[in-house]
Design a binder for these strands. Structure first.
Length: 865
RNA sequence: GGGCGUUUAGCUCAGCGGGAGAGCGCCUGCCUUACAAGCAGGAUGUCAGUGGUUCAAUCCCACUAACGCCCACCA
């Protein structure tokens, strides 16, 4: 046992304790308990800890620490993601500041620089996770581009290639003209846009006086038009199908075709077809064997396929110029306001350009069925269950997954091309072409989507492609905790690839939580400037406070969480409360004066404590983190501190006291690991709390009779306190109380609790009587279950105030009586409600009437004076 | 166009068939020797609206409204 600082200082405690855990190997799996593994959703190596991570990691750490206390063989694998585009962007930006481009550096040199950057800054996020208290096994730490993960990536790629589940093909993909790469469908963000719908005139080739009006949101793409289309059954245009129009601003002639794709109701029912720059148009073009004219380069700059005047212009400048030109030539028919959605890059928010290009794809539709079945059958469960639907919807309509990226930082595609045209896919670089024998092989320039390696994370981190002990022991992992925003990005792909390569699910449970938002409910982002930095909060209030606060906001329904600093303050205040009650414990232990036997309060708190264990267990089993936090908050503050500790000041039973307090520390440990570890040591407990054992419910300590007795005592103390406060009795002034009881039970409880009452209600003398010759005069009055309470107030009583107070009380009882009476006189209720409910209502009626009469009597007595 | 969610005290949110709750804020009184980051007491709600089911609805069902999110190739 040792001294405790008067002031709770989380910064010092947390740093020291974490270092000790890590150095002592407390995070490593221990014992021969049931394996419990989880893999961390790898944060971006370039990143800094944000609130989303803080929440994710807190929840996972709660589960990890809980299972460790339960005695499971617990492994939490940490790691970071190379985050291809994001990292490359960051490093490129750094070079741009020095006036250098990655092209100048060259691929090899650039990648070297990214690695150097990663070595320098990659530790930031993991050190921030340590600040938070994450009890991951750092000796298992992995990086998506480390040797093992890279081998796993090549293995998976080659196997899928062999099975035809990975292939190369030309498609219209989402192209980011700023990042210069293709993106997958889920990497596109859609944004509402107040745009225009421009109506353009396309004149008929054989009759310059006539024209068709074509509606478009993207006039600059008209140079890539290779047809205009109408609906085959559209009466308006029957005679025009097969004819030609002149493409505005050019002298090109393009056909008028008929295709079902066209919606007759929309605009004029005439659509320009631009196969190279629109996915739908591309399909139409294929059906009609239209030429594909690409009019932009990879930066969105118009190329030689546009008229000379436009060549070299950015797509947005080209739009402006085209509109001016069209207007001038009288080809701009009309302009409408038009609300549509534009697609943007999820990394740099540039407007994407749908572009035709050769890319690599994973045949997700083929991998989807087993992945769907695993969830449908309940093998994998979602918490809350409703998120299954998002998974099903996405997986059922899943499309080919574009996995090639035209950047440099990432896993290079393990495919080589020979000058003879042969395409070789191999885990290791091939020396010669097996077909022509040439050694002039060129590796594919592209790298893989970052999410490709993330999808392998549950087994690549455990040793795949080798058949390791870890893989055998910990796969499938226990569960995954993540926000709903990456169900499509990550969860679905892990399930699909896990099943394909391990023939088993990657995890049994998927725990989905809401997203952190600011006080107004807006998404937190750097650009909005509303992001709250968890590291700052930890510095100011401590990791325990932040963890407690985050966990307490997680609801069973998985709603988004609005974070306000005031909530973290409340969390910190709770830590402070725990800190101070620990100081009180130490003081009392140092006094070395203990009660010989358990008191009413002891038996009461032991019973309440069993229920606290039960509630905590239930909450954790269901992943109701908020419930867990709030139930413990309530038990510790409102029951243990407010009542038990206060009562124990009269005489403390050491064993009870320590049982409950040490139990509280262990129940809280998953939520607030640092403070509980610190106090655990200060109390002189053996070992560390991180490797202690989880409290078990001892049913023999449940004691409903004592709880009922305490309830009476608490009701009484509150009644007296209320009188004192309302009647302005000076806090220091002791009062005498007369209790006229009608139930022996109540009298017994109050008699047993006499000392508590004196201590907590400021009472000196307490008279328990079952008869009263005359009711005390000049006394404030209250009624509790089974007794009437009089607090004589000498001259202090304000008669009018007391009358008002009692009148209010009388009205309250009257309302209750009315309500209960309505029920009891309802024939349907008496006939159909369960007997238990009816009895309950009858009992209520009786006590309310009793109380009402007492108050009424008292009121009459006062007003008669 | 589909789907999901939310609407409860001034604010943030729990509760989800039988007496409306918490934290913060507010009012009153207290430095009571663990804690003023605290203690004690108090005020505050047509539980979004309308209908239905039920003996009984904040809770279940239907519709309506407002707000928010996700998905979808309508130029």
């Amino acid at each position: 046992m040792s001294e405790m600082e008067k002031v709770y200082n989380p910064a010092e405690i947390e740093k020291r304790i974490y270092a000790d855990w890590e150095q002592s190997g407390d995070f490593a799996p221990q014992g021969d308990g049931q394996p419990f593994a989880l893999v961390i959703p790898p944060p971006n190596v370039t990143g800094a800890l944000h609130m989303g991570h803080a929440l994710d990691e807190t929840l996972q750490d709660i589960l990890t620490r809980w299972h460790r206390l339960l005695g499971d063989n617990t492994l939490w694998v940490p790691g970071t993601d190379h985050a291809g585009i994001a990292t490359q962007n960051v490093v490129e930006r750094k070079f741009a500041q020095e006036g250098k481009s990655r092209q100048e550096l060259g691929r090899e040199k650039f990648i070297e620089e990214v690695w150097r950057w990663k070595e320098e800054y990659g530790g930031r996020i993991t050190s921030q996770l340590r600040l938070l208290g994450a009890s991951c096994d750092w000796r298992h730490e992995r990086f998506t581009m480390d040797e093992g993960c890279s081998r796993a990536v090549r293995e998976v790629f080659v196997e899928l290639y062999k099975k035809g589940l990975i292939f190369k093909g030309s498609r219209i993909i989402n192209w980011c003209p700023r990042c210069h790469t293709a993106l997958s469908d889920v990497e596109v963000e859609y944004e509402e846009n107040a745009g225009k719908l421009w109506h353009l005139r396309y004149h008929l080739a054989d009759d310059a006086k006539k024209y068709l009006v074509v509606a478009t949101t993207r006039p600059e793409t008209l140079f890539g038009d290779t047809a205009v289309a109408v609906h085959p059954a559209d009466e308006r245009y029957q005679d025009l199908i097969g004819k030609e129009v002149v493409l505005p601003l050019t002298d090109k002639k393009i056909p008028i075709i008929a295709d079902e794709y066209v919606d007759r109701e929309f605009g004029t029912g005439v659509v320009k077809i631009t196969p190279a720059h629109d996915a739908n148009d591309y399909e139409v073009g294929r059906r009609h064997k239209l030429p594909v004219v690409v009019i932009m380069d990879t930066s969105g700059i118009l190329n030689e396929n546009a008229p000379l005047r436009y060549k070299g212009l950015d797509r947005f400048a080209a739009r402006e110029l085209a509109l001016t030109d069209l207007e001038e030539k009288g080809l701009l028919d009309s302009i409408q306001d038009y609300q549509n959605k534009i697609s943007k890059c999820y990394r740099c928010h540039s407007v994407l350009e749908p572009s035709l290009s050769p890319q690599w794809f994973v045949d997700m539709p083929k991998l989807a069925e087993p992945a769907l079945a695993a969830v449908r059958s309940g093998k994998i469960k979602f918490y809350p269950d409703r998120w299954r639907k998002v998974y099903f919807d996405w997986m059922t309509n899943v499309r080919e997954w574009c996995i090639s990226r035209q950047i440099w930082w990432g896993h290079r595609i393990p495919v080589w091309y020979c000058e003879c045209g042969e395409q070789l896919c191999s885990k290791d670089p091939p020396q010669k072409c097996p077909k022509c024998g040439s050694d002039k092989l060129r590796q594919d320039e592209d790298v893989l989507d970052t999410w490709f390696s993330s999808a392998l994370w549950p087994f690549s981190t455990l040793g795949f492609p080798d058949a390791t002990d870890d893989l055998r022991k910990y796969y499938p992992t226990a569960l995954l905790v993540t926000g709903y925003d990456i169900i499509t990005f990550w969860v679905s792909r892990m399930i699909a690839l896990g099943l394909e390569f391990q023939k088993d699910i990657p995890f049994h449970k998927v725990v989905i939580h809401g997203l952190i938002r600011d006080e107004q409910g807006r998404k937190m982002s750097k650009s909005t400037g509303n992001a709250v930095d968890p590291v700052e909060l930890i510095k100011e209030y401590g990791a325990d406070a932040l963890r407690f606060t985050l966990a307490s906001m997680v609801t069973a329904g998985g709603q988004d969480l609005k974070l306000a600093v005031s909530k973290v303050v409340a969390g910190r205040n709770f830590m402070n409360k725990i800190w101070n009650v620990a100081r009180f414990v130490l003081l009392k232990l140092a006094d070395n004066k203990f009660a010989a036997e358990k008191s009413l309060a002891d038996e009461w708190i032991l019973s309440r404590y069993q229920q606290a264990i039960q509630k905590t267990d239930t909450a954790l089993h269901n992943f109701y983190f908020g419930d867990m936090a709030l139930k413990l908050y309530d038990f510790v503050w409102s029951e243990f501190c407010d009542w038990y500790i206060e009562m124990s000041k009269l005489g403390l039973h050491k064993e009870t006291f320590l049982t409950v307090f040490n139990g509280i520390l262990r129940l809280l440990h998953p939520l607030t690991p640092f403070i509980t570890e610190e106090i655990w040591a200060k109390l002189g407990n053996p070992g560390k709390i991180i490797t202690a054992s989880w409290p078990r419910v001892d049913k023999s300590l449940l004691n409903p009779a004592r709880e009922k007795k305490m309830a009476t005592v608490i009701e009484f103390i509150k009644a007296v306190r209320n009188i004192r406060a309302e009647m302005n009795v000076a806090p220091a002034k002791k009062a005498d109380v007369v209790v006229l009881y009608s139930q022996a039970e109540t009298a017994a409880a109050l008699s047993e609790a006499k000392q508590y009452i004196q201590q907590l209600a400021g009472v000196e003398k307490i008279d328990l009587v079952d008869k009263l010759a005359a009711k005390p005069r000049n006394a404030a009055h209250a009624v509790i279950g089974g007794a009437e309470v009089f607090v004589p107030l000498d001259n202090l009583i304000d008669l009018q105030a007391e009358i008002a107070r009692l009148g209010k009380e009388k009205d309250k009882y009257q309302a209750e009586i009315d309500r209960v009476k309505r029920k009891l006189t309802n024939k349907g209720f008496i006939e159909k409600a369960p007997q238990e409910v009816i009895d309950n209502e009858k009992a209520k009626e009786k006590t309310y009437i009793e109380k009402f009469k007492i108050v009424e009597g008292q009121l009459k007595a006062l007003t008669a004076d």
